[in-house]
Design a protein around this nucleic acid. Structure first.
Length: 110
DNA sequence: TTACTGACCTTTT
DNA sequence: AAAAAGGCCAGTA
């Protein structure tokens, strides 16, 4: 049994709390998790925990609103998922952060 | 076991 | 203004 760190739990909790039709950025999640510089680990946690915890990994994008996935197939897949939720994605896998970025008022249960 | 990499972001030069 | 380096944790070899 490997117990995840506190900030990892926060990251997972935050990702699970992302509402439908909205997206968050790596840096934002890392900041909320308590480490503004841990954005890198967010992606890695997504890789690991998205399968186990069934996290909405498609709602996590880069700070510029671009899908940073490596595989083009995954990019198109994510784009498709986002479009299904009503998020407009440009041809260049660009998302309008001003419209779809999740503005967190306050996290109730931490 | 140690070392390196990874869907990134922030700060400094 | 742009470019480079640093930083962070977990997983894999």
């Amino acid at each position: 049994m490997s117990i995840p760190s506190d900030f990892t739990e926060q990251i997972i909790h935050i990702i699970k709390s992302i509402p439908k039709g909205q997206v968050l950025t790596y840096g934002f999640i890392a900041k909320l998790a308590g480490n503004p510089r841990a954005a890198r680990q967010v992606s890695w946690i997504l890789h690991s925990s998205s399968k186990k915890y069934n996290l909405p990994w498609h709602r996590v994008i880069s700070s510029k609103g671009l899908i940073s996935l490596k595989s083009i197939e995954d990019c198109e897949y994510q784009k498709n998922l986002l479009e299904q939720e009503g998020i407009e994605v440009s041809d260049g896998y660009k998302i309008d952060l001003n419209k779809h970025l999740w503005k967190i008022n306050s996290i109730e249960n931490m």
